[in-house]
Design a protein around this nucleic acid. Structure first.
Lengths: 188, 188, 188, 188
DNA sequence: AATGAATGAGAATTCATTCAT
DNA sequence: AATGAATGAATTCTCATTCAT
């Protein structure tokens, strides 16, 4: 549903993946302002190849963001199906923050994600999956009943970005999250 | 100690202030990537004047960050001296988040502040003042005794950035902060 | 003599024709600077196919020009054989201008045609046919005896291009040509 | 009225003139598609200087066209004031064609001039001056009374372009124009 | 032979920074 | 000191052409 364009030739699909992987690395390392040339170089392809697959730099960033969101949504879905309801939300939260701390692009990307219709669908899916996790956590008594989805999203985003920009180490991540988790507990 | 350069001529000092004020506005509105020309235009001076006062764009950004930090530190100092110890921390937290939500530059700036020796002094002052506020809050029984300064700083930064990038409205700011404040409360 | 290459496979010949037809449309519409991709798209073939038939874009343009010239030459030949000698030249003139007014490529093409040996043969044929038409017009007393071929060619080219670039409507075409035709009349 | 922007600094005005002069040469020689770099090189300035004076290539082309039109208009005005009414129009016609024959840019430029509001004023002035010349020629009995301005403009443009694209030599220019002039004579 | 992906040399434009006025 | 023009490297994007499938 996301990429129903004509099936790419094998080599083209391979290169598209290479570019996307390179983009993830490079953007993670240097932020969304690195030149497309850097991405091409990291991918080991010519600049034209990047632009063939993603006609503008924006497109590339969007595609990357879509993929990141899709990956997170998948993790959420797994947790909804298999995780312990009482801890699944906290687990996901923790994991996401750890990942964000290593990815400089996410911040730049998320900044525009909200107003970008082209990723809206992925955002919706993601939020939907998170909503389910939140509901389960409430049912399991791990989260106060009046906590709303947008608050959780806001905290998640904020902490993720904070972890990245502030270069928090693992310990600081844990302690900071502990405070937030306490704030979410029932009877708080 | 940071700016012990020779005393500026009156008009030069005036221009320096104009540039800094313009920079704050423009960077707040468009982020750290606007051109220096925009800053000059807003300040009503020629581009050369900006570069005379701040030899590189980095310098200008750093000076701006220093000033912002100094201003916050001043607010903190006032709160330490005059505020109600039980709520002063929360008050400051709330105010800072509201301000950040309107200032696009802070995020870009803070991203590098950590690793920048040139603003280290201001950062230290700021942290020192915040530490005092935290201590008082603990003494007043408003914050759990084992909460550490770096956790508070981390949360503060994260929420501020989150508020900005996520364009949180006032209501969402309040609710999100409420969770964090609950997490900081004793007996949590 | 121009295309004595090996006889093409049936499908190849078909494709060559498709490309040439597409090129005529596309170049007529957008001028000689459209990308070869546009031509391929219009022809419904892949870009590689275009380049297999015409190894460079220049070749394609030349081939197109050759064809256009051949077509005009054919029209001239018909007029020489069948037309009323007293008006055939004016008729052709009028028709060509009307066609040019709808074809943006011709101008760009003709600009280089002169110095291009590869189309010289077609140019010669064309001029030869036009010369015959001119002779007949003189014999019929419709054109002054001292009018030379290069003058007629020059006027023909100029008016054609003018009509195209100036987007003359049919009325303006007619009136402008009337002046030229008057200038060609005997006793002028 | 054309450039009432703030008076440029002496060196800036000098450079602007250098760029415009270089543009005229280079565009005349290679057509409107040469790179702006070529213009900069010919002018002996850096590429940035060209773009400071003319923010886009289009602007540069427009400025050039405006200047060319202004120059022609001036010539026309002089002829109206001083020339022999019976021959002034033919004289101007002849001169313009000769100049066009050496200027490859004019064609590309004129192609868009029609639809460009930014040169509309210059075009109007030019047409106005030409109209006066035409009126005088009619009064002097050198041109048929029913010849209209748009026909003259059309012929002028067409022949100019033809002379350029066809690389007509002086003799051919003369003979071709003679035909047109004959067509314009009264009693034709 | 056809396909369409990859290449890489430009081209226009921007912008931090320098320097003559 | 201020001005604002000049510089030129960097960036995004295009497109003719080549080449693997």
């Amino acid at each position: 549903m996301t990429d129903q364009a004509k099936p790419l030739r094998a080599d083209a699909r391979r290169n598209r993946a290479k570019v996307l992987a390179a983009a993830e690395q490079v953007f993670a390392e240097f932020g969304a302002s690195v030149s497309t040339e850097q991405v091409a170089a990291r991918a080991g392809v010519a600049i034209g190849t990047v632009f063939r697959h993603f006609p503008t730099k924006q497109e590339l960033l969007r595609a990357l963001l879509r993929e990141l969101l899709a990956r997170r949504t998948e993790e959420l879905t797994t947790l909804v199906a298999e995780g312990d309801p009482a801890t699944a939300l906290f687990e996901f939260f923790t994991r996401l923050v750890a990942e964000a701390a290593a990815n400089k692009a996410v911040v730049d990307l998320l900044a525009e994600a909200g107003m970008d219709v082209q990723v809206a669908e992925q955002v919706r899916s993601f939020q939907h999956a998170l909503a389910q996790l939140l509901d389960r956590a409430k049912l399991a008594g791990a989260v106060r009943a009046d906590v709303r989805l947008d608050e959780v999203l806001a905290l998640l985003g904020a902490i993720s970005q904070g972890a990245l920009l502030g270069s928090w180490d693992r310990d600081l991540q844990t302690r900071t999250l502990a405070i937030v988790f306490t704030g979410l507990l029932p009877g708080g």
